[in-house]
Amino acid sequence: MSLAPKAAVIIVAAGRGLRAGAGGPKQYRTIGGRTVIARAMAPFCNHAEIALVQPVLNPDDSGIFEEAVRGLRHLPPVSGGATRQGSVRAGLEALAADPPDIVLIHDAARAFVTPAVISRAVAAAARTGAAIPVVAVTDTIKHVTTIGDVDATPDRAQLRIAQTPQAFHFETILDAHRRAAREGRDDFTDDAAIAEWAGLTVATFEGDLANMKLTTPEDFAREEARLVAALSDIRTGTGFDVHAFGDGDHLMLCGVRVPYGRGFLAHSDGDVGLHALVDAVLGALADGDIGSHFPPSDPKWKGAASDQFLIHAMERVAARGGRVAHLEVTLICETPKIGPLRETMRARIAEITGLPLSRVAVKATTTERLGFTGRQEGIAATASATIRLPWSE
């Protein structure tokens, strides 16, 4: 029985994406609550047939890249070239020391590639040596002159729209790229064109209409609307937490260090606001509570900062293909006074979760000096979280 080929993917992410409008390189913008590049990479990182994921970046982007793809497995990024062709060659050369059998080359701006397309790419490359995903052209295409007059109507039955990932035997496409570089050819718009120029026959396999390239502001608006519409399972969860005062000189409240004459008696940092929010998010997911994910019996969480608990809950939402629509926390205490800290707390929660400030609310109330909070023995918090998930029974 023959072994499965070792397959790698190069994620081309060195471009600036100027046609996408203001907002920085398009691959680091968010769509559907997740960065474009994370959406493009994740299907490869999680695919059983892909052994290596090689990102190629603009060297100025290394910091934002690591933040954008946090949690995804990949090789150390390499710097791209002045052109897409140069960037691909940089990725190929980075893999050459321990070469795979097959390499897939994928544009980071194609954020909606599916596992099925990836599997078809690997199979097609193993079978043919050079293959690209394509979709049929449904509109009539016109060829025009330099002044805009129609001079031909190609037969659309023989036309296809090329996509990525394009797939090749590794040594074959590496040799083609090296030859093109030696001969000063840097004008190819995709890797299939280099393969054709090098004399290879390029096969095709079934692509996916949803695997479109994000290029213009209109593309982003359309896909954002589509993703939101697909999240039709709207859920709300609630949370509650309480901690008594103990020795100390500060309190952690909603991720903010608040100077105070007492501290919290707690296993972690005792942040009642974030703890309540974590339970609200997990409750909306029907995914247990904070204690089941971070048991107080585990010494690992002794004194732990609670922002990591909230990040974990947000990651659980993302793993289900969902997004958080709104978070609200109410702190119940006589002191400290929350009003002067409210906006700082909102901003900190927004920073932890990656949500816009407009989707985070912090409120405060007292119990009119009744009960343990009224006696200033501790602080309580309630929270709610509204999330959107893809519909499932």
Rank of each mutant, 00 (worst) to 15 (best):
M1H: 13
L3V: 08
P5N: 09
K6D: 14
I11T: 05
R16C: 10
R19H: 15
T30H: 12
G33Q: 06
A40G: 07
A48H: 13
E49N: 11
L52N: 10
P59Q: 12
D61S: 08
G63C: 01
E67V: 08
G71C: 06
L72V: 06
H74K: 09
Q85K: 10
Q85M: 12
Q85S: 08
E93P: 01
P99R: 12
A109S: 13
R110H: 02
V113K: 04
T114V: 01
T114Y: 03
T114L: 05
V122L: 06
A126E: 14
R127A: 14
T128C: 07
G129C: 04
V135W: 09
V137F: 06
K142F: 14
H143S: 12
P154D: 02
D155Q: 08
A167V: 04
F170W: 05
I173A: 07
D187E: 14
F188L: 11
T189K: 13
I194V: 15
I194K: 04
V202E: 10
D208E: 14
D208R: 02
M212D: 13
L227W: 03
L227P: 01
R235V: 02
G239A: 06
D247E: 15
M252S: 15
P259F: 08
R262G: 00
L265P: 00
H267W: 03
V281P: 02
D287R: 05
D287E: 13
S292D: 09
P295V: 00
D307Y: 07
I311N: 01
H312N: 05
E315W: 00
A319C: 05
R323I: 03
V324H: 06
A325K: 10
H326E: 14
C333F: 01
T335D: 10
K337E: 15
I338Q: 09
L341V: 08
A350R: 09
L357S: 15
A361H: 09
K363I: 00
K363V: 00
T365M: 15
T367S: 14
E368K: 12
L370T: 10
G371R: 04
G374P: 10
R375L: 14
E377Q: 13
P390H: 08
P390D: 09
W391V: 10
W391T: 12
